[in-house]
Nucleic acid binder design. Sequence first.
DNA 1: TAAATAGTGGACAATTTTATCCAATATAAA
DNA 2: TTTATATTGGATAAAATTGTCCACTATTTA
Lengths: 144, 144
Amino acid sequence: MFSKACEYGIRASIFIAEQSLLDRKVSLKDVAEAIDSPAAYTSKILQKLSRNNIINSDKGPTGGFSMGKKELEKVKLSSIVFAIDGESIYNGCGLGLKKCNEKMPCPVHNQFKMIRDELKKMLETTTVLSLAVDYEKGFSFLKR
Amino acid sequence: MFSKACEYGIRASIFIAEQSLLDRKVSLKDVAEAIDSPAAYTSKILQKLSRNNIINSDKGPTGGFSMGKKELEKVKLSSIVFAIDGESIYNGCGLGLKKCNEKMPCPVHNQFKMIRDELKKMLETTTVLSLAVDYEKGFSFLKR
DNA sequence: TAAATAGTGGACAATTTTATCCAATATAAA
DNA sequence: TTTATATTGGATAAAATTGTCCACTATTTA
């Protein structure tokens, strides 16, 4: 469904969000351990999220990654997916045709449209904050 | 959503099905041209479909690929996806966790389950035959 | 101002996926 | 039985994705 990079990105964001709720900045190492991902690769992904204003990053001692109140309130899963995987999830044809629309649809255009629209709605309405709160309560897990 | 191989596989199956409705066998070249895919790569995919009894393949002159009446009636998209991409679409965790279930869910487990179940239902109820019939009527396209 | 810390950026490596090439096999028709 | 045709299987190659390494920059604290 998503690229590995995107999966790491979502998991990392949830962890950073949760720690930010507790007023804690986290280091790259913290993140990689919390979500069980390769640190250096995760670093690249966090850079992307940072450039897209989804998370903050601060250098130097006492530095690390965090999310501000504003970000916590407004960041949806869709922002993360878009920042990392682009809009192919929404636009791309299910059968890989370059052009595929109502006028000239691939054979499964309508069937896929249904699913895709559901997915889109889900991503656009699910906040990282809500996922972080559940995670904080121990209702969900970021590794294993 | 699916691998490129799987996209080619679905498109190829629809084309072969449609031609079989007209009692025509098609060659690898025919398929590759009809769905605009690399021939040699498509060959590997057709082999996989053939071994999974989704299509027939006959060697020699007058050989080619085809689908029998039985196959035409029973082959669903799910069979093709399973033959090529395996069951990761159904089982795999949306966030890439090795273990993810009701007891120990990833943060988006339930949200993804909804979408995935819809997708599964769609794949399991959509026959290649129905897609081939639409394609035959000019309602849908396999390239561009 | 020096030292220690933490993210950044760029080059590089491994793996997986996608794609190509060609000799071998099977088969139909002449 | 020879020839032509079409798929098969194996080896390779190219491209994309995933993952690693290391020197550099920024920043805090002593």
